[in-house]
Simulated assay, not measured.
Amino acid sequence: MPDNDQQDNGKCVTIIFNPHSGQGDPEERKAAISNALAAHGYTCQYIATTPEEGAREAAATALKQGVDLLAVSGGDGTVVEALAAVMGTDVAVAVFPAGTGNLLSVNLGISRDPVKAADAALFGRRRTLDLARITVDGDEPKYFAIIAGAGFDAEMIAGAGREAKDKLGLLAYVWAALKNLGNGPIRVAILLDDAQRPIRRRVKSVMVANMAHLQGGVELIPGAQPDDGVLDVALLKTERLSEWFRLIVSAVTHSLHETNTIEFYKAHKIKVDLSKTQAVEYDGEAAGETRSFTVEIVPGAVTIMVPKAAES
């Protein structure tokens, strides 16, 4: 149900609001966003997500009402659900980051500060982004904006549940990663575009990315760009503790291409077959388990408002 926080004056931003994202008080978050937009003469109409109606359905409701600017306050999963609803329209989406990871905003230079996020929403520039479409076991396709994977990264995501993230924040992922370090490798066969033969490797994790960075400026997928029309594939072969240490150092020092424990490829379509059933994730959301999935790029799928100073 839409919730108008102020008297309508003709300048209104519709906001898809996930009250369960992040660790703070949702009412305080809502007030901070409203105040930041009110400083520029805008009112807000909030559409809260529920277990029955997620961000995609809420965004579809907003589109039916007619909006020029749609904003989302939530984590990466909430934002990407809303983005999937606006594909094929010229509606721009603004983001007020409120999740645990917020990797989409990290990669696009959007601040968690509601005042700065409001400035990007109202006075920033429009940036066209690709999305990726993932199909798991032939089920209905889903969309992601940042990264999907199977193996170690998905086990880490699955191990960092809502309760752990509420208590520990980003440390929930660190704890889950440590618990899964000892899990053995898997064999994968990866078919890139129209290749006749798959790439076969023994890996810890296979990741398909549309963006490059983690928190703190760490570049996990060197050179990945969210608007270049291609996907980046990373095959993580790290097993021993010493290899993990070198991998972390290489990521922090932006020298991953110099390591031999990770391989990189580019493609428009990637089919992944796994030797055994593995956990799968996309944009930090656990997506169950599978032995096969396919990812395809959707070029120029959506438009997001980013700060004028953000890098292209």
Rank of each mutant, 00 (worst) to 15 (best):
D5V: 13
Q7F: 09
V13H: 06
I16K: 01
E28A: 15
R29A: 13
K30H: 05
A36H: 07
Y46F: 15
G54H: 05
L63C: 09
L69S: 04
L70V: 08
V72Q: 00
V72H: 04
G75C: 04
D76Q: 02
A82V: 09
A82I: 12
A85T: 08
M87K: 13
D90A: 14
A94T: 09
A94Q: 05
A94G: 15
V115T: 15
K116Y: 13
A121L: 12
F123E: 15
G124C: 10
R125V: 13
L129H: 09
A132I: 00
G138F: 09
P141E: 03
A145Q: 02
A150C: 14
D153V: 00
D153R: 05
A154S: 12
I157F: 02
A158C: 03
A158F: 01
A160M: 04
A164M: 14
G169F: 09
Y173E: 08
A177G: 10
A177R: 04
N183E: 04
R187V: 12
R187Q: 15
A189S: 15
L191R: 14
A195R: 08
K204I: 08
N210S: 06
A212T: 02
G216Y: 08
E219H: 01
L220R: 01
G223A: 07
A224M: 03
D228H: 12
G229K: 12
G229F: 08
L231Q: 06
L236I: 13
L236T: 02
S242K: 12
I248E: 05
I248G: 12
V249T: 11
S250C: 07
A251V: 04
T259R: 10
T261P: 02
I262S: 01
I262D: 03
E263H: 06
F264P: 05
K269G: 07
I270Q: 00
D273E: 15
D273M: 10
A279N: 14
V280M: 05
E281N: 10
G284N: 07
E285A: 09
E289P: 00
F293V: 03
F293N: 02
P299R: 09
